[in-house]
Design a protein around this nucleic acid. Structure first.
Lengths: 342, 342
DNA sequence: CTGATCTATGGAACCGGTTCCATAGTAACA
DNA sequence: TGTTACTATGGAACCGGTTCCATAGATCAG
């Protein structure tokens, strides 16, 4: 529909070869500075390249080499700050490489159940899957495709991954509250899903229960609220907790977003934080600092960087066994937690 | 370095042609369901394709058609919610098309002055530039490259764009404060830069001054604070305003992020909002709702959608003159503004 | 019934690189 | 000085599609 575009870069490698009086193979060698080319011919070719303002066509390079020089990144729709923060890390890490970043959203509004990406037509050398709960059939597709995959914030035994120890994180948060003297500690988080790769919430909960048990505090099922992720949804769950006859004196929320929902409710009801209610979040997003929220900080930005680095390493070596990179967690005690009133 | 990858998709169009007993041209015709192919041969070819699980190699398609089936999106590093919101719109709009999304960050920490993207090696059919202040030399490069470009939240006379009327937005915010009876109205925003395509802040300021003038309120230069963007930076500017002998009774912040910085300071100093100080923001990010911040809402998500739609339309038609799509603004009066105390 | 027109189809060129392989020229060795 | 082993280089095949162009067979008009 458009035959004669303005094409300043329609100069091909053959034009360069002809003008420089060499063969195309030699030009190609100069471009990839491979093998031995006489210093003199190299200079001549380079001069011609500069003169003609020749730029190699990346698509042709891809076709003949089989490489794409691109990484596909899938992550949930960018509604939560933690995903964005991870993506920033990915972007940063990729910026200093030759790889481009192809972004795929796993969950487009129109099409909630859609498989994250059409693997067969993926034009990338590797895939980074961040926080997208995949079910087994998708995981299998990736394994079959032979495309290198790195999971971030996800777990599957057959895949490389970058992770934090969420059980430990659950312990850190809960132990902090126990240490402050709390006995009535609630957990507010996402609903669990057995069949998915996203297990973080389950593990945080596990750490919570272990710590309660170790402290000799019985687990009270009514103190465990679970529901869809989101600030609004968290408000509803927090309200349910605070409406109880014996409301908790501390709430451990599975994410900062949810913790902020708890703070909203406390604010509405004039419940003093931390005097009347202690709140701990999880993630360490930027807002947690502004809100003076005690939280278990995980290296979000760094996880993006680590994911890229791991993927690039795998692209080179193709290791036989799944590689794992563990990132550290840190409890950041801030103003939203204190000893309970006695 | 890796000669024999597992290659389930190493079946080529010629394999299909041979097996189906037709020519490659016919297979190609079936793939692109172009021209006339007998219903019978079509079926036979399709059966063979299914049987062999043949998937066309996208790179080869790109090479021969010259298309990329990808859109490059450049935007500032994802530090502010408004950029993310726009990106979400882009992502959503692209999801229902055949186009992939290649993400480029204009401002990588390591490399602040770096040109947004290496145009020559851009593997995309078009470019969407969102909120990235470009200087003229970059704009020129794009124009020379012949690559279709759409600007979102930016202005340049030679480029297509999606925009809001920021002068009008400045008027809306200021008029709202004037109508409430304020006389001492400050403006707090980014520093201007003549040579860039990002002119929004200047225009909001222009709307502010026009409205003041129309209301017969003299402009007081000391009520105009400008500095780098950011919540923290806004706190400093807000503090300067509130430290004055005759502090403003209302502050119009050029963005919600900056307005939130103002609220921070008010909160620290126990200045009652809106009784002692009215605050108006700009953008309508999600947090503005939670914070009950009066703001001039612009359609951020929709701007991403509109940008993609405009770009795709241009890809088809290549219109001779720059196209413009204007999106509406709306003042959302909320709890952060009220009449001044007399 | 025959020549003209149309339709479905196949072969081959093409997109623009990379790389295998053959070769001419030179260096090294005996 | 003759033979061998390199080295630098060019030609051509190749990656896997799309599409131009030629052709065989079918259809139609006179």
């Amino acid at each position: 529909m458009n035959t004669e575009k303005k094409d300043p870069s329609s100069i091909t490698i053959r034009d360069v070869a002809r003008k420089a009086g060499v063969g195309v193979a030699t030009v190609s060698r100069v471009l990839n500075n491979s093998e031995a080319v006489t210093e003199e011919t190299r200079r001549r070719v380079q001069a011609t390249i500069a003169e003609l303002k020749y730029v190699p066509n990346p698509i042709a390079q891809q076709l003949s080499t089989g490489r794409h020089d691109a990484i596909a990144v899938t992550l949930p729709f960018l509604t939560y700050p933690s995903f964005v923060e991870r993506l920033r890390g990915v972007q940063h890490a990729l910026a200093s490489t030759k790889f481009d970043l192809m972004l795929y959203s796993a969950d487009v509004p129109d099409n909630p159940g859609k498989p994250p990406l059409p693997i067969s037509k993926l034009r990338a050398d590797g895939v980074l899957i961040i926080s997208v709960p995949l079910d087994d059939s998708h995981v299998q597709q990736f394994l079959n495709s032979g495309l290198p995959v790195v999971l971030v914030d996800l777990f599957h035994p057959d895949h490389h991954r970058v992770f934090v120890d969420d059980i430990e994180g659950g312990r850190l948060a809960t132990q902090h509250l126990v240490d402050l003297g709390h006995k009535r500690i609630a957990f507010l988080g996402d609903a669990f899903d057995e069949h998915k790769t996203f297990q973080a919430m389950r593990e945080r909960f596990k750490g919570y229960r272990e710590t309660l048990a170790a402290a000799g505090i019985p687990f009270r099922p009514e103190y465990h609220q679970q529901g869809p992720h989101g600030r609004e949804e968290a408000r509803v769950m927090a309200a349910a907790l605070l409406d109880m006859d014996k409301p908790p004196t501390a709430i451990f929320a599975g994410s900062d977003t949810q913790a902020i929902g708890v703070l909203d409710v406390a604010n509405e009801r004039n419940i003093a934080i931390p005097q009347e209610l202690s709140v701990v979040g999880y993630d360490g997003i930027r807002d947690s600092e502004f809100l003076d929220l005690t939280t278990v900080a995980q290296p979000l930005y760094e996880s993006g960087i680590a994911g890229v680095e791991l993927l690039l390493a795998i692209l080179q070596d193709e290791p036989a066994t799944p590689q794992e990179v563990r990132l550290p967690l840190a409890l950041l005690p801030r103003g939203s937690t204190a000893a309970p009133r006695t």
